[in-house]
């Protein structure tokens, strides 16, 4: 017999892979991406393509420069680029999108050690950096289908115009309002989110608790919770960014704490802040708290609780 391979058990593997998970996230984002292209035209398609290309190139180049193993194959850069694109208004100049994706991958992800080591969700930081740097361009939202009319009509998002009360619930649910490309259509995002939950890629805890807390807080503060939930980046954030494995807690209780925190901060920013949008900042803040949450919350091992009770007797 030839040389034998010796390795610790187990000797079989389930076949799960990072690539497969990332592929599932991409599949889940397809409805939102398709809707964004239908609503906002070829500009949207171009932005999505450019963001993904920039993210993947940044990933490849930074790994190359750092003389590390290439990681483009795990598709995580594609996910980051796609999520970032969906966070942008369709009118954003392409060069800004390129910068956003590069910042997300190079600064947030690779500077900290690559996949699994980033302290915050790269796409969120990309969006925030762009919002801070190019506020006017990043809030230049247009009406859906204005690309068909030929002239882009700039509009406020329902969020900024909440008090005008000009958008009805169904329009908001279907995304027939102004806003960033991927975040207007709640229906598409929910379809994607449910797919991820069914595929067991994400647990429903974070999206449900996050959206629930936000709605509850808005209600307490005297705002319209349904409008609040359907507007802005909340749905996109709750299903696709707050659930990012790397930057959210591992345990169930940790996830609940994280999601409640996200919900509270989002509501507070929306009600009292001067910013148009709170979802990205709230998630960033809770991303930063995640290591602390994970340190404090330890799952209760099987049988340990009982032992403590007995000891107390």
């Amino acid at each position: 017999m030839d040389k034998l391979l010796v390795s610790p058990s187990p000797h079989i593997h389930s076949g799960a892979s990072t690539r497969r998970i990332m592929l599932d996230v991409i599949i889940a984002l397809v409805p939102a991406a398709v809707i964004s292209i239908i609503y906002f035209g070829y500009n949207a398609a171009l932005l999505i393509a450019v963001c993904i290309a920039s993210a993947v190139f940044s990933e490849w180049a930074s790994r190359k420069i750092m003389k590390r193993e290439g990681t483009c194959g795990d598709l995580s850069a594609v996910v980051t680029g796609l999520i970032l694109a969906l966070n942008l208004p369709s009118t954003l100049p392409l060069w800004m999108a390129i910068i956003g994706a590069a910042v997300a991958i190079v600064v947030v992800k690779q500077f900290f050690g690559g996949l699994g080591q980033n302290f915050a969700n790269p796409a969120i930081v990309g969006r925030i950096v762009l919002t801070m740097s190019f506020t006017a361009a990043m809030t230049n939202w247009v009406e859906p289908f204005s690309w068909l009319k030929g002239d882009a009509v700039t509009t406020a998002t329902p969020l900024a115009s909440t008090y005008a009360g000009n958008a009805d619930y169904l329009d908001m649910f279907l995304g027939l309002t102004g806003g960033s490309m991927g975040e207007t259509c709640a229906l598409a995002l929910i379809i994607g989110g449910v797919y991820l939950i069914c595929r067991k890629v994400i647990s429903p805890i974070i999206p449900v608790v996050y959206v629930g807390t936000t709605a509850f807080m808005l209600f307490v503060c005297g705002e319209d919770p349904i409008k609040g939930v359907l507007s802005g980046g909340l749905m996109l954030g709750a299903f696709f960014m707050a659930t990012d494995y790397v930057t959210s807690p591992n345990t169930k209780l940790g996830k609940v704490i994280f999601a409640v925190g996200c919900g509270l901060v989002t509501a507070v920013i929306r009600v009292y802040g001067s910013l148009p949008e709170g979802a990205s900042f709230s998630i960033l803040l809770m991303n930063i708290l995640t290591p602390q949450i994970d340190r404090l919350v330890i799952s209760k091992p099987f049988g340990v609780q009982k032992e403590k009770k007995e000891a107390a007797k």
Binding site: T18, I21, S76, G116, Q117, Y245, N250
Partner: peptide
């Protein structure tokens, strides 16, 4: 083995 993505599986 590749990098841990902290998926919690």
């Amino acid at each position: 083995p590749t990098a841990c993505i902290r998926c919690g599986k």
